[in-house]
Design a binder for these strands. Structure first.
Lengths: 343, 343
DNA sequence: ATCTTATTTGTGAACCTTCACATCCAAAAG
DNA sequence: CTTTTGGATGTGAAGGTTCACAAATAAGAT
């Protein structure tokens, strides 16, 4: 079996310089595309670099430039669809901009955990930080303190927060969902919410209530789920067992909608004839659910690129205004919603 | 709005040393838990470190030690369930071992893309590399060459390959699925495979054929999907339209099983009464499918920790034997499979 | 008191770059 | 022919740490 060669002194600037009889500074200039080097020497040096397979040492470079071309993303709950999508798209956007990404997923959304995550990197000269903080518990001031000096932007934090951040307007999304049901003629609309320590969950929850209130409808019951299909199933069972009457159900995400539909079916209720259901996220599978799910689509791709772009602005021009950039979700109508049956 | 402070000279070893009247080397010793320092000075230095909030500079340290405590994971297709699970669990395992993770997702599984990914990091002194290479196209020799010197392990590569790697035995999993259907009495068993340039897809496909052959059954039709629910739907439609007779269907993953079930239902076929379906992966939603899906569970958690562990072995002891570690999946029986109807 | 030995502490160099500046040379201008 | 200018190249230092070794101190043995 072949084996790699672990002892291997790297080629340095000096090696290349000696090889083609110039000073290390000249080689450095060529590497960095400095214009002050003659056509002829540049050619020779480039040739040598190729011949010797020279790779600049990023570490040494970082030590002097104090930049690393490294971004860190600290995320919580990346086993959920939303956060994992965000990470994926942030990575793509960062790489497109020439940055590498360090990924840290924390298991508990506490200041201590975040502190540990930041500190473990703090000596590493990360150029910027993206935090995916979908749950409550940490305030901007504390974070700014922790990062001390290194620019950061948050994703999926509370709407209206004064933190530099990019968010999707969850209130608007939930309003879209609820209004859609109202427009169809529903008046008894229950909800399965996400865990209420998540910003997105409370935003969607409150907006559901507010939208109903604005239409002069009193809200149906609400049950709290945990984002998973099984959690949605259990929440729906609770709703059904409470004997609440409802003709429509808004779920905090598509997985819970899936679970809820299973519970409804088991209770002898048909979707959408007896109960309309609308989800949130538009996961790729939603179109193949039984029935295909009406849901709210979030543009995670845009969210990722926007936040990287914003972070880069912050890094390059420290006077970039701190703001919250807000994106808007859209309604995707499929077959899980119908006007209520005339009873 | 509060603002972070971008200009901020870091505290160094020398600062701490001056502060408590010892040499920088002594401080270095304290930081590195070197025993050759008296109890009293250690106490004083530790106190100073805390007071001044000194954070060792990893970059400077890396420059001299030639180690970075950084692992890289290069992944392909991380938008799919399997790869994304692997990344998540690798990250967790790495962090538990005190390593940070650089994440690079490549969009095309070509040697060029991989080369770019490795080179962009090569000067960064990554200590080790994990490659998630679920598709064909790249050989070990080429990779070893590319990495030149830095230890790596591959995940999800071809079973039986001579590369240092950790894999789940897909053949065995598919055998489990197919045998389960045979045991129930099925004889007409079709397949929806994953894209056949993925190792896992061909392994499952071939094992499906082999298991049928071993039981003296001639294989039903096979249609190629793309791992997504929609792809599974389309593949199932093709199967149905070909007028092939079958009482059971094995799908390459759970999403495609979901799509297939939708297609079957639309064609007036009931699952499992008319057609049994078995999936692969056991995604969390599978239990809430209609009907709950019989499937094959893969232990991605173990896969992640095993590969990090193996990589660390390789890093610490370069004479660690190069091998392929193999994990085994299990069958999860739910309600999408039944003996065939007596026709 | 003197010589060993062990323990604690300090010094110089190295790791590989980039930055700021000095030097050199040739061509243009006086 | 001398001076000025500007581009090409080289030199020394710095960035913050660790390593190998030297020095200083303390304790023990003769």
């Amino acid at each position: 079996m072949a084996r790699t060669n672990p002892t291997h002194r790297r080629i340095t600037l000096h090696d290349v310089a000696r090889y083609c009889g110039v000073s290390y500074q000249t080689v450095s200039r060529v590497v960095n595309n400095n214009p002050h080097v003659s056509k002829e020497t540049r050619r020779r040096v480039l040739r040598a670099i190729k011949d010797m397979n020279y790779q600049p040492n990023h570490v040494a470079r970082s030590l002097v430039t104090r930049r690393s071309n490294l971004l860190e993303v600290i995320t919580f709950g990346s086993n959920h669809y939303g956060p994992s999508q965000m990470v994926a798209h942030v990575e793509r956007a960062a790489r497109l901009q020439g940055y590498n990404l360090i990924l840290t997923n924390i298991s508990e959304m506490s200041l201590d955990e975040i502190r540990a995550a930041i500190n473990s990197l703090s000596g590493r000269l990360v150029d910027g930080l993206i935090m995916i903080t979908p749950v409550t518990g940490v305030e901007f001031e504390e974070l700014a303190d922790l990062c001390d000096g290194i620019p950061f932007v948050m994703i999926d934090t509370q709407l209206g927060s004064t933190t530099p951040s990019v968010v999707i307007n969850q209130r608007y999304g939930s309003q879209l969902a609820t209004q859609h049901l109202i427009d169809l003629g529903h008046r008894a609309i229950c909800e399965i919410s996400g865990p209420l320590n998540w910003h997105g969950a409370v935003a969607r929850h409150e907006s559901w209530r507010a939208t109903l209130a604005a239409a002069g409808i009193s809200p149906g019951q609400s049950a709290e789920g945990d984002w998973t299909a099984v959690g949605g199933y259990q929440a729906a069972v609770r709703l059904i067992e409470s004997r609440a009457h409802f003709t429509a159900l808004v779920a905090g995400n598509d997985q819970m909608a899936l679970g809820a539909m299973r519970a409804l079916r088991e209770a002898g209720l048909r979707v959408p004839q007896d109960v309309s259901v609308v989800g949130f996220d538009d996961i790729p599978e939603a179109v193949c659910f039984e029935p295909p799910l009406t849901t709210i689509r979030q543009d995670f791709d845009l969210l990722g690129s926007q936040s990287v772009e914003y972070l880069l602005d912050l890094m390059k021009r420290p006077d970039t205004p701190l703001q919250q950039r807000v994106l808007y979700p859209t309604l995707i109508e499929r077959q899980s919603t119908l006007p209520p049956a005339l009873s």
